[in-house]
Amino acid sequence: MQDDRELHSEPTEGRAGLTACKAEEEQDTQFSKRRKFLTRVGWGSLAGFLTINSLAFLRFFYPRVLFEAPSQFKVGFPADYPPGQVNSQYQREFGTWIIRLQDGRFFAMESKCTHLGCTPSWMESQKKFKCPCHGSGYYITGLNFEGPAPRPMDRFKISISEDGQLTVDKTIKFPGIPGKDSNEVYPQSLLKA
C-alpha cells in the first residue's frame, strides 16, 4: 500500500494523468479512512490497556491480607482489673488501654493522641495521660485538658464474650467530640461488669 502511494505521488502530466489522479485520490481517501480507523483502534486499545494497567498498579498498593494484630481481641476476665486503674498491657500490640473507673465500669480507649497520632503514656502519680510529642494531657476518661490536642481520645467497643472474658472490638469506634466527656456522649462505650 505504501509503495502504491509513493508511486502515485509522482507528478503526472496531461489530462489523462489528471483523471487518473482523481480516481486515485478517491482511493486514497478510502485508504486514509481505513487508516484513520485502524490508528484509532490501535491507540485506543493501547490507551485502554495502559489505563487498566495503572488501575491494577494502584490496587496493588492495597494488600488483601495484613500481618497486623487482629481488630477483635480478648483481654482477660473483669476480675483481673482493679478499679480506678489504667491497664497498658495491650498498648504496644493493639494500641488500646483497658480502663476501669472507680465505680467499676470498663471502657477501652485507643492509645493515640488526637493531635498528631503519637502514643501518650499514663502517668499514675499525676493521674493523667501525657503525650511525649507535644505535651497534650488527658484525664482518665480521655478528655483533653492541656496541650494542642483538639478533642478527647477515641474509644472502642468493649463487651463480655461467651466465655466471660472482656472483648475489644476496634472496628466499632466512639470518636471523641471537642469539649465533651465521652462518658456522657457515649454511655454505650461503658461496660458494667
Binding site: L58, F61, Y62, P63, L66, F67, E68, A69, G95
Partner: peptide, 17 residues
C-alpha cells in the same frame, strides 16, 4: 483500610510493611 495512608504504609499501622 482503604485510604491513602493505608497505601503508603502497606497496612493500618506503621510496621514492617
Amino acid at each position: 483500610y482503604n485510604d491513602i495512608r493505608f497505601a503508603l504504609l502497606g497496612g493500618a499501622q506503621v510496621g514492617a510493611n
